[in-house]
Design a protein around this nucleic acid. Structure first.
Lengths: 161, 161
DNA sequence: GTTGAAAACCACGGATC
DNA sequence: GATCCGTGGTTTTCAAC
């Protein structure tokens, strides 16, 4: 199907574990010392992981409310006429931050949007409908916590703490 | 309430816009040229944004399936006995990658988990129940797209391109 | 708060094992 | 495939505006 299955070993898991904690402020040498390889190897592994599509990119974890966008809304939707590009179309809509497509069920699209006020959110809702989603329910998001992957490197020996 | 409201200006928005695209492989000098300030100022602003809590951290965007965790499940739950630390407790559970707490409604907790097989997911489900969540529904996630914040910097003047 | 320059640090590339 | 090393670029620090 999708072809190659990348083999993720302990070194890769350790690297991914480190990147989870902080994907920006760290050095390959520091990671290498923690997982037991050289800095150059860390760089090679990261490159492989990126090429294999395991790592899709690096994003900042942003607190929307503190950034001035007080409203964070979760729209539960039904795709009336699903197309191949529907998810990507929705994602490119102003205000949309995440799109989750479920494998089955009626309410098979979950769209998270952020806005400054209700009028703003209302406009976003209209855009979503025009793209081909019927909004079944809209709810206010109170809190969202992200732990991108707490599996990696759980059994990697740590020299500190 | 939460106290200080950080003032996000055009420079901050431009910086956030750049970090969205790639939070790891970029130079402060490059960002500075795009938004019209020096590299040092970019670093100062980023530090401010981090201290203010606008930027909570930097995380890799990982494709779970390609990393060997084929099952990505969305649990829709109801908090039977909500506590202050419930969301954080759930997040620290093995296999849990995101916790979304809704402001109101019966099914007010959405928990995304990843696992290697059904037995793995079943164990995770048990852990979630033990933490105080009743699982109302479980669905298979087909696709998840993230666009952390496409608002920032849309109207920032660019001197090139 | 921002800027500019010097120094320490790091990533990147090739050669080697 | 992993490691070492030299070079260019970048972050960092500090003085000055």
């Amino acid at each position: 199907m999708s072809g190659t299955e990348p083999e993720i070993d302990e070194v890769d898991r350790g690297i991914l574990h480190f990147l989870q904690k902080d994907a920006r402020n760290n050095a390959t040498r520091e990671i290498g010392e923690a997982v037991g390889v050289s800095a150059g190897t860390v760089r090679n592994r990261i490159e492989k992981l990126e090429e294999a599509g395991v790592i899709r990119g690096y994003v900042p974890d942003i607190n929307y409310e503190k950034a001035g966008y007080q409203l964070v809304i979760l729209f539960t939707c039904t795709a009336t006429n699903p197309s191949e590009t529907l998810a990507k179309d929705i994602l490119s809509t102003h205000g949309v931050v995440t799109v989750r497509k479920l494998l089955a069920g009626e309410e098979n699209y979950h769209v998270t949007v952020v806005g400054t006020d209700t009028a703003d959110v209302s406009e976003i809702a209209n855009s979503i409908r025009e793209s081909g989603l019927e909004i079944v329910r809209s709810e206010v998001l109170d809190e969202e916590l992200v732990q991108p992957f707490n599996h990696f490197g759980e059994d990697v020996p740590r020299d500190d703490e």
